[in-house]
């Protein structure tokens, strides 16, 4: 997309560019995956076994990762900003809670807590809109999807 990248001469990036880090991460992932395929029979070239394809893909991934890591130029690592990382972590935590809770607390209570947490704690919205939106979303979705559309959704204590 950024065809204007050619116009400006990039500042000399240090050794640790985004590509370098990503490439090395991919190599590590590929090595771990290749190691995990050890329990599967490899088969032969003419008769690939169940371990053949995963190992092949892992090797390809490793080679490509090396290619990415070896590439010159690219964004210096310091230029990648992580301003939203705290939010991202909070959202992931909230989703993790939802996964743990949905079949124990039921859909409505879980979503109520999820939305209330995101709005009230993470975004620091005022209490009234937070309460209204979280109640509306959790009970509204439940009404539309289970009551009207009969998509099975879990219920928790007190039938909530």
């Amino acid at each position: 997309m950024s065809s204007n990248a050619a116009d400006r001469t990039p500042p000399r990036p240090g050794f640790w560019t985004g590509d370098r880090v990503a490439g090395i991460a991919l190599i590590v992932a590929a090595a771990a995956l290749a190691f995990e395929t050890r329990v599967l029979p490899l088969g032969s070239l003419g008769r690939p076994g169940p371990g053949y394809a995963p190992l092949l893909y892992a090797v390809i991934l490793g080679v490509l990762g090396a290619g990415i890591a070896a590439r010159r130029g690219g964004t210096p690592l310091g230029a990648i900003r992580w301003g939203e990382a705290r939010h991202a972590l909070m959202i992931l935590l909230a989703c993790g809670f939802a996964a743990l809770a949905i079949e124990r607390l039921g859909f409505r209570l879980t979503m109520l807590a999820l939305v209330a947490f995101l709005l009230g704690v993470v975004e620091r919205r005022p209490a009234l809109p937070t309460a209204l939106v979280s109640l509306g979303l959790s009970f509204g979705c439940y009404f539309v999807f289970w009551t009207l559309l009969r998509v099975p959704l879990p219920t928790g204590p007190f039938g909530l």
Binding site: I102, F107, L119, R125, V151, L153
Partner: peptide
């Protein structure tokens, strides 16, 4: 306000297809 709504839809959509927490 919009993104918590979308998160709810994501969880709901993913869970409802197979009623599977593993999918979430």
């Amino acid at each position: 306000y919009l993104y918590p709504t979308i998160v709810v839809f994501c969880v709901l959509g993913v869970y409802a297809v197979n009623s599977s927490v593993v999918d979430v």
